[in-house]
Write a protein that binds this DNA or RNA. Structure first.
Lengths: 139, 139
DNA sequence: TATTGTTATACTCTATAACTATA
DNA sequence: TATAGTTATAGAGTATAACAATA
């Protein structure tokens, strides 16, 4: 908080939004150095960890609607980072290209450093409680 | 997480974004019942707690840029919730109207219930660590 | 019947630059 | 010179409805 305390600074929901916005702004700046948006990087990480996922499956895993996956995957494909591999005549797997694997590795280095610094900002006595608390909110 | 675990589900930054999006979506739905956006409600809470704040001061307190305060305050003013009170020939305080105070009270009831439920979703042993952790990320 | 991929569209939030009037 | 308020604009994320093709 740049300003001194206000009635909002005790509300967990407000603090959650403010901190997420601040952290994602920081991550966005760092990922721009490898030409990726935050969402792009999450898609690369997801499909890098599992073998064959369709656009719909990626959307469900990341809480992104089918329709909104279209521009994301178009961008990744036109950048040569992913390819489409037909599974049947309706579905297609989104798979990393060689270039996509390299880009994912670069992004992951940035993200690991970012996550490390994020955790270090949290006082030690609270640190280990953070991820379990967030996971409970998402379930 | 609707889907089973993936490489992202251990990243604090990703979980922070996902949980904030989920929580704010929920709050947005609830506040729509009193015709307010989440940001509108935060402005009302802020100016309800302090006597006289200008648009620029509100923006700095809430991490909203000057230019983006304009449509927010125009909306609140045209809804009759706030009024502009000249301080000098350049600055003006944004103050709650009577209608604005009533609307703020309605919104605050909704938000208090929301915040209560949010905290209850966090397992008891992690709960008290949540706000301090978030505050550390915003500083 | 349900699902996949897609198009089109609109709304919200955010970011930047520039301008004027005043402090 | 710095700040307040504003305009204009663009980018990004998100939400909804609808459609054809396929499972």
């Amino acid at each position: 908080m740049p300003e001194s305390d206000n009635p909002l600074s005790i509300l967990p929901g407000y603090l959650l939004r403010r901190s997420a916005n601040a952290m994602m702004g920081e991550l966005r700046d760092r990922l721009s150095s490898v030409g990726l948006r935050v969402t792009d990087a999450t898609v690369l990480i997801l499909i890098g960890g599992e073998n064959e996922l369709t656009a719909s499956q990626i959307g469900r895993a990341l809480d992104i609607q089918r329709a909104n996956m279209v521009p994301i995957l178009s961008r990744l494909e036109s950048d040569g980072l992913v390819m489409r591999k037909p599974l049947d005549r309706r579905s297609q797997a989104i798979v990393l290209s060689g270039k996509g694997k390299k880009r994912l590795a670069e992004a992951f280095t940035i993200i690991e450093q970012f996550e490390r610094e994020l955790l270090e900002r949290i006082p030690a006595e609270h640190r280990d409680h953070f991820v379990p608390a967030l996971r409970a909110l998402i379930e």
